[in-house]
Write a protein that binds this DNA or RNA. Sequence first.
DNA 1: AAAACC
DNA 2: GTTTTGA
DNA 3: AGAAAC
Length: 577
Amino acid sequence: MSPRKRSRSSSISSSDSQPRKRQRSSSDGSEPDKRLKVYIVQAKLSADEVASLYALVDHHSVNESLDFELTPSPRDADVIVTAVHMRKRLERHIDWALAKEKPIVTPDWLFNSVSAGELLPCGKFAALSELHDETVHNCPDGDDDSDTAASSPPTDSLLHLRSPSQEPAASADLDWKSRYACCRASPLVCVNQHLVSRLAIIRRSRELEDDKISALSYDHAIGMIKSYPYELTEDRLNEVNSLPHIGPKMISRIEEYLDNGDIEEAETIANSQRYQSLEAFTDLYGVGATTARKLYAAGCRTFEDVERYYGVSYEDEAEEEADLDDGLKTEETDDLHLASQHNDRASQHNDRKPPRPLRFAKPKIPSITPRVALDLRDDLDQRIPREEVQEIFAVIVRELNAVRPGCVATIVGGYRRGKSLSGDVDIVIGHPNLSPTGKQVKGLSSRLVERLYERGLVTHLMYLSGFHAPDVTRAAHWDALEKALTVFVLPGGVRRRVDLIFAAPEAYWTAVVGWTGSKTFERDLRRWAAEQKELKFDSTGLTRRSNGELLVPTSEEDVFRLLGLGWVPPTLRNADA
DNA sequence: AAAACC
DNA sequence: GTTTTGA
DNA sequence: AGAAAC
């Protein structure tokens, strides 16, 4: 295994020769390769912005006058595109000495150049005023100078230019009366959010008590209310009463809420010891509703009780040891030979402590014990600010490109839906030309995880899926996409749950849609596809039910288009509480 | 708990 | 009245 | 079997 044919050429130090690739020096035969190499710094760009930039470069990479090409390495770039405006921030991604040799422009330069059909002067688009002059000097435009004068950065307004589609286009065919969440606009916080929070308590209680069916009904009702555009009052009850998923029982709940400002059952539940305990227990990784109920039945009420329960549980000393020590037990994870030089800006992560050598080797079975989960709890129960999500993403992208240049990645999950705090970080990773049938995807996944582990960035591996070739007959298996569920830590930081999802090229956009959520939004996408379009949708692909034909979308909007749905921006997919 | 189906 | 509800 | 993900 480990088909590491192209030992990481890595993006950083050019190091040894690498005669293989077209080295942009026109020297090798034919045409002086005139394609303009573009390096995009993903930091500070939203996932959508990154996607549209990539799309832009792609579309124009086969075009006459404008001939762009993505490059995985800033060193090879003819132009560097970034939304970062500060030196310190940029230095996290690009060496300063290198930055001075390149034009560093904002995304608008790319958008506007494409619109104009020619390479525009860089002057007005310098990302860092500090590097304005260098940027102008190194600008790839035919002949520049037309800039200067306008030393101001007036073009900020053009930021809205964006690519033709997505960003602003909150499509017109959203319909808050639809019975599918994927046809409605569900903001992060709705006008009736307090009512939603009450219903969510009942819903959660149903879930904890294993009443799936009731929980599902509350999911649907909550989804309807999340997208209902008016503040709920007595005089709107009729209208609400006629909404799908809102039946007699839900109406009575709503009436009670309108009368008393709350719902009694929700209060009772929220105040109950049982609810509080079950809810707390499920914060532990590996503890779901069923285990929580068992713990409660065993007499546990608080985490201290659970500590005792598992701590004392000497059902097997040896096991206990293994879980706890996570100390020097380095099961040789290697088979990897890329150990050599760590050429990245060296120390930067001068490990805080011995990076706890995890205990995984290559766990086929996700075996994190409750004991380990208890140790991680203090860190993992802290929410993650958006800033840090971006930092984590930047580090992972950097390492990813060292392992396999040319990879693309998108932050998905709650972050992408606009949440200011996230429970974890979800990243979908793809590569424009990885073999569709997967072997390489698997290799990429384990190689990245090993690299992150070696550098002390990953401390635990909750789960590493085995690879399964994309099997159309059995789509939508949890394991149909390669996944690595990790505990990740920035040097000196709090440990965070980071999920990496690896998608083959043809599954990239469905994976992005499938992992952006929310849960109810996803459920209804599938229902819509099945019930209205005779299609089968899931994060691994979109297929025609009649003949099993695989439809391959080329962008996220394309997924919606193929499903016959209006575009719903990620921030309006918050159909859950 | 609500909707779709028979 | 029975089946389906994401997979 | 149960828990994990959106």
